[in-house]
Amino acid sequence: MNKADENSKIDLEALRRKDKHAFAQLVNQNSDNIYRLGMKMLGNPQDAEDILQETFIKAFDNIDRFEGRSKVSTWLYRIAVNEALMLLRKRKDNLTEIDAELETKNGDLLPRQIVDWCCLPEKELVSNESRKRINAAIQTLSDANRAAFLLRDVEGLSTKETADVLDISESAVKVRLMRARLQLREELTNFFADKMVRESL
């Protein structure tokens, strides 16, 4: 059972009374997840730490608004994603057109590279060079597609929970997830196919 699944044990009444021990428990059980999401959304530790702090400050201030219909971890993800997207928007204020262009380019992503790189030895697939490339590939996704991918495939939320966090329909989650997965597959195929060629020389 991961830490986020343990949230059912959290005393919501105590949180609403602003009980510091209950809140410390909430932070302990969710801080790794929120930090991880921030790292992968923003790509650097400083911004991830800012998102982490802002998320729990907002959660503490707004706990009265949490109705308990979703898991508290889902509610925290929602605050964190909104904070991350706001920060990303601020960064890109003058680049809106470029972002829109990328979204269109990635919108209809058909598989182009057909190379079976699954046969590479595990140590090649998880080498430092490969891990760098995997992280870089995640950062090439549009913000919207990256958020859907991280929540669904890395954090393990259901399609319904991801839709609740992002405030979009389940079918919109599926579209974003498919685009993200196909784009990542394409990026990793480019990398691993090159690696196979280099190693065969």
């Binding site: 932070v27 801080s31 790794d32 930090y35 991880r36 790292m39 992968k40 530790p45 730490e49 982490l52 702090q53 729990f56 190379v115 079976d116 790189w117 699954c118 697939l125 998880v126 490969s130 891990r131 995997i134 992280n135 590939a137 995640i138 991918f149 991280l150 495939d153 890395v154 997965r181 196909l182 990542l184 597959r185 990793l188 195929t189």
Partner: peptide, 27 residues
Amino acid sequence: DTLKKTITLCREEGREVNLPPDARQRL
């Protein structure tokens, strides 16, 4: 096959990240 492997590799890489102790203390 490559799509499944892509998801697995990204998931494993993503889940490697944990909150550093000093950042936890500051929080």
